[in-house]
């Protein structure tokens, strides 16, 4: 097992800063005086272009045309589709986290393998729950709903962090905190929506929301523990 590398913030070989070659910085800035911008305006030009293209753009996607689900319930189905996708992705993210733990070990106050396996299984359980609820409403759980698609786009960087072999367990916990925060908020919104549109689903959704709150608390605790320098010690050291 590799040493838990929680201290990438150590002197190394970072080449990105201007101070690496201060003489070049001076030359580059002097160059901007001789060779100024060739066109006027500013960032507002990009903003105006976004507005222009938005005016002629179609939605990114819609719900299926043929459905037995009443139109009034489609917003709920859209959000259920999002949770289905997110929990499916979440299960894969926790699988990647378990690999991190096996590669780098944990740290004092960090998760055990059992902790991560438990959350992974609960994420999978939530996915199956939502799958069943969509079927119960008369929807097709294989449909990628607009909200599901957008949440996947919004969170795709999280997987990049977790699956990159160079990132550590703690770095990945920071990334999954983003997912858990979003997930927690989304379950809450979903439960409120169900209360209006399909009250028979609310109790099950509230139960899942409660479990997600526990996930968020755990991840917050682990990232806090790992962020305190005095506690950055391997559990394997007998700390």
């Amino acid at each position: 097992m590799k040493v838990q590398n929680t201290n990438s913030a150590q002197p190394g070989d970072n080449h990105t800063g201007i101070e690496l070659h201060p003489e070049y910085a001076v030359e580059m800035l002097n160059g901007t005086k001789e060779f100024g911008p060739t066109s006027g305006g500013g960032p507002e030009l990009l903003a105006r272009n976004r507005v222009r293209v938005a005016a002629m753009s179609a939605p990114m996607g819609t719900m299926p045309a043929a459905s037995t689900v009443p139109t009034a319930q489609l917003p709920l189905l859209d959000k259920l589709g999002a949770r289905l996708q997110f929990e499916r992705m979440g299960t894969r993210l926790y699988e990647a986290l378990i690999s991190k733990l096996e590669a780098y070990g944990t740290f004092s106050g960090g998760p055990s393998r059992e902790d991560l396996v438990e959350i992974r299984d609960e994420e999978h359980g939530h996915m199956q729950l939502v799958h069943g609820l969509i079927v119960r409403l008369g929807g097709d759980p294989t449909v990628v709903t607009p909200c599901a698609n957008l949440q996947a786009v919004a969170s795709r960087g999280i997987g990049d962090v977790l699956m990159d072999p160079r990132t550590t367990l703690l770095e990945c916990l920071d990334a999954i905190l983003v997912a858990e925060l979003t997930d927690h908020e989304s379950w809450e919104v979903l439960a409120k929506l169900a209360a209006t549109l399909a009250p028979e689903l609310e109790a099950e959704l509230r139960q899942a929301e409660q479990t997600e709150t526990e996930h968020l608390d755990k991840v917050r605790g682990w990232t806090a523990a790992g962020s305190l320098p005095a506690k950055r010690k391997k559990r394997a050291d007998g700390d």
Partner: peptide, 17 residues
């Protein structure tokens, strides 16, 4: 219609950061 290269960089000069 447009010159995208001028939209992207209107008034822009490189600055550190």
């Amino acid at each position: 219609d447009d010159q995208p290269s001028n939209i992207a960089s209107g008034g822009w000069s490189w600055q550190p950061g």
